[in-house]
Design a protein around this nucleic acid. Sequence first.
RNA 1: GCAGGGGUGGUCGAGUGGUUAAUGGCACCGGGCUGUAAACCCGGCGGGCUCACGCCCUACGUAGGUUCAAAUCCUACCCCCUGCA
Length: 393
Amino acid sequence: MSERAIEWQEIARDGCARTGLIRTRRSVIETPVFMPVGTLGTVKGTRFEALESPELDARIILGNTYHLWLRPGAEVIRACGGLHKFTGWRRALLTDSGGFQVWSLGALRKISEEGTEFRSHVDGSLRFLSPEVSMQVQAALGSDIVMAFDECAPGKATHEEARRSLELTARWAERSRRSFDGLQKEGMDTGRLSPSGALSGGQALFGIVQGASYLDLRRESLRRTVEIGFDGYAIGGLSVGEEKSLMYEVIADLAPAMPEDRPRYLMGVGTPEDLLEAVARGVDMFDCVLPTRNGRTGQAFTSRGKLNVKNARWATDERALDEECPCSVCQRHSRAYLRHLYVTGEMLASILLTHHNLAFFLDTMRRVRQAIRSGDFTRFRREFIERVGSGVE
RNA sequence: GCAGGGGUGGUCGAGUGGUUAAUGGCACCGGGCUGUAAACCCGGCGGGCUCACGCCCUACGUAGGUUCAAAUCCUACCCCCUGCA
């Protein structure tokens, strides 16, 4: 195929950190980018209008194959014209393959060569997810970026376990690739657009590197994944229980070794500090539930670190969550009010905290891109980490 | 006035002679959350001392009493609720 589903273009570089553009069939994404997680076709606690507003300006969000496959089901979404049409989200969508659920559903699943047998967490029914099924579901969803179906090993996996897992992931990657290509050819992608410029209008497929915390296995996994050939490459299986220093070490070793002409995506990470550390090591894309989940559960991310909105000490505090944050929540509401909303169980608490957290994450990435462009990233990173570590108060 | 029921820790409410500082729920306080089984989960919650094992004090309306031992039994008193006058 001469036409590509997405295009990656580097704009500037500062050390290993790089800023650039990903052109997808639906939007142009400036990187490094943070992608809010919208598992079930909604970024919990927020509206698309807010995500699209200049204040947040999220260019791409996630959806999850496993969850949408259980409910409402791939055929419902296909019948509704794909996930974009179904939800009304018009910008880019990346769908996770269900691979992560292979790990996170622990006791509810059984892995075999063929795929993974899940006990549905919704109704207990037995479901079987494989590379082929995952690709079929993701074609029905019509996301712009499809993830290969992988197996994520636990952070403390032994070398032997990690090797077994990586090899299974590699075989699943080949099957994902083959199945994906077949579905593209058959026109099963509900999100297809007509070719435009250099873009094919089809879905992009990303491969996932595994190998736990073992650098030799990571390198091998990368080599085998690149051999198969993907539109982008992801680092999976981090932040799953391993030491943070180990995570940074793996990224430092792996990211610069990943193909330069493709986006590099660190899956499921992370805290604001994690994002900067990973950008510094050459990563372009991130997703994480932290801003939305922690927002819903009473924790704000600020330029001075985490702030627990529930704490009694804010009961009469008139200051904004983050006094330096330009977001609409910080411009209008006090810690005292937000605490009151949270403590009384008002849904607005979750909505406002989610908004602020997303604003903080997305704005941080904007500033990261700016810093890289101006060759100032090293200083930006040092000062950011210092301030975040200084503590709220 | 008579008859019956009842007064338990911030609150509601278990417990009716012996590991009971007293089950639970709520409230309150604190912590956690990293490709979302999560608007969720965990912990603390009479006071004092100790790094800690632990020790001491004060508590089941009030005051007495019985008993080795009482929130639990007895007596008196105070208060609340229901019914009858």
